[in-house]
Design a protein around this nucleic acid. Structure first.
Lengths: 148, 148
DNA sequence: ATTATTGTAACTTTTATTATTACATGATAA
DNA sequence: TTATCATGTAATAATAAAAGTTACAATAAT
């Protein structure tokens, strides 16, 4: 199945808006993500609706953070993206046959459990956690290239 | 994303072969699954390679079980299908930027954990468990339609 | 006014699954 | 042995969701 890349992309943007350019146009973000400005507006619109970011039109406009990164969990971002389905295991949905019913219930039970665990994990990670990890990496990177 | 329905379909077939028709042609299975005989052969071929079922050509041919359902876990079936990806959350895979690295690692860690838990769950369910659940449902169904 | 920028609709491309068509191969039976 | 039934498989089309593109309206700054 085709993988959904909206979550990683949006996280990238949020951290970038916090650590680097406080205001970025869709075009600039698009170049960073190697995509199209319209795609950027599309995936960012859900975050704007939730108030995590704002966008302004006209010259000098663009995207800005409106929340602290430690106030936004990966679950929040996931929900802002419209809660896209992250599991690609289907279950028949064909209640004709009793065999199918048993199969579907078994698989749906697994999938529901997994979905709960996944969302728990997403809730337990704040965007700021990832940003802190980035800070560490940046420090390591700078140490590996000493100026002397 | 489009969901993968091979696992539920194959489970349906295995239980049907055990509880009902010991030998079924691809055509008959296709009607049961509301699909095409070629699709049936395709999704069943992995199970044949693992020895869980056999297929025979010619008149009177078709598919037959070669294992006990309690010897086959959902994980076994999943592997026989070629271990299709059940998670549709991507992670950038673009190691250019340090921000991206942190995002990717965070998401990949989650996905790896989830994948392990999912496979554990699949391993803990035998096809016979689902067949037993079917037996219960069948009994309930029969009780709900008394003959008197 | 002109230019920069977002908002959005419409359309195309991509990618994985599923479905279909066509035909070769093998097995049974008349 | 020939007709028929069934699988095996390659090639191709349909489908669905995400991603990409184009076009243009709306709005804000200079």
């Amino acid at each position: 199945m085709r993988k959904d890349n909206r979550l990683p992309r949006v996280l990238h943007v949020l951290i970038h808006l916090d650590r680097h350019d406080k205001l970025m146009t869709s075009g600039k973000i698009a170049k960073m993500l190697d995509t199209n400005p319209v795609v950027v507006r599309r995936i960012m619109s859900g975050l704007r609706n939730k108030g995590y970011v704002s966008s302004s039109k006209g010259a000098g406009g663009g995207w800005q953070l409106q929340s602290q990164l430690n106030e936004i969990s990966l679950y929040d971002v996931h929900m802002a993206l419209g809660e896209p389905e992250l599991l690609s295991l289907g279950s028949g949905d064909n209640p004709n046959c009793l065999v199918e019913q048993s199969v579907d219930i078994a698989l749906k039970t697994i999938m529901t459990d997994i979905d709960i665990i996944l969302k728990e994990k997403l809730r337990n990670i704040k965007v700021s956690d990832i940003a802190s990890d980035f800070d560490l990496r940046l420090e390591e990177y700078n140490n590996s290239k000493p100026m002397t």
